[in-house]
Nucleic acid binder design. Structure first.
Lengths: 161, 161
DNA sequence: CTTTACAAGTTCTATTTTGGAACTTAGTAT
DNA sequence: ATACTAAGTTCCAAAATAGAACTTGTAAAG
């Protein structure tokens, strides 16, 4: 199984991971959410090679998760900012952060805390039901086949015949 | 920057990714949540090499995200089941799935849908504030340094002196 | 007017990681 | 005796990565 094939799986987790499921991409996005926009800043903060960073930023731009726009001419320099599609990865990062805070803090407490300006409390994120608003318990969720799977299997069948 | 060093960053996202931030691990966990427990099933469903699968399962067991228990003797065979720590990665997978559903469905609709047994609706997950329960808007959250960061920087200072 | 610095890459090579196929082990079924 | 199942392990070629050096365009400093 090659990495490129994962994107074509009839699974939204797999498809999402085909873009963000590597060592560095989510760390780049974490920095984006913290306000980082420029190549050198990403490189220093994350500590990956310039080579890889170029590659990952291009991939994110290509998938319209970041947008590359000039912030000066002479010489022309670009900055990378989150698009709407990128901003919507926020829940992924926050749920990862919550898990890391709980299970990987080494006894020191969380490296970062989050203040919710609406209620003025330090908070973490819970997941709740889009329909009834209640907090989600994994046991109370039943996965079932959706239209995307049917479309996929029909496409596979058509290819074979 | 080597992969192993990421684990020591004073950042919960980085620490979490040091375990689950690779091509395959979250797909293994996705299958775990769908009920898969055995080596061969994981291998066929995900399509990764047996070699890598062995490696990833061991890592997950080592980090107590999966537990390996015998399901038969003669010959002894093991199955892999989510621990509490593993189950708590559910929000990460569901937020990834939601993002994939929205941005990577190729126009076919979601491959999977989720029924919330409490309210009987097809649902997706939103993130909400652990304190006030309101849905989270990224702009309304202010990150600030926490105790884990202070402890980290003091440890670094002590090492240097 | 020569050197230094900065930002954003690109190129190169050695090392690491991965994919895929074949092999192993222990026991069951035919 | 032969095939089959489950859960790996071994091996090698191919792909991905890290890290350092190099490039390009411009401005500022000496």
């Amino acid at each position: 199984m090659k990495w490129d094939n994962i994107q074509e799986f009839p699974c939204s987790v797999a498809r999402a991971l085909s873009i963000v499921g590597d060592r560095w991409t989510l760390l780049i996005l974490r920095d984006s959410f913290m306000g980082t926009k420029r190549f050198d800043k990403f490189q220093k903060q994350i500590g990956l090679s310039r080579h890889r960073l170029t590659d990952r930023l291009n991939k994110l731009v290509e998938h319209e998760i970041l947008r590359k726009t000039p912030y000066q001419e002479k010489p022309v320099r670009y900055e990378y900012k989150l698009t709407r599609k990128g901003v919507e990865l926020y829940p992924v990062l926050m749920t990862l952060a919550k898990w890391g805070d709980k299970w990987m803090d080494g006894g020191d407490g969380p490296p970062m805390e989050y203040l919710h300006t609406q209620c003025k409390h330090k908070m973490s994120v819970d997941i709740c039901c889009s329909e009834c608003g209640e907090t989600i318990n994994p046991k109370e969720v039943i996965p079932q086949f959706g239209p995307g799977l049917k479309a996929y299997s029909e496409r596979v069948k058509a290819l074979k015949s």
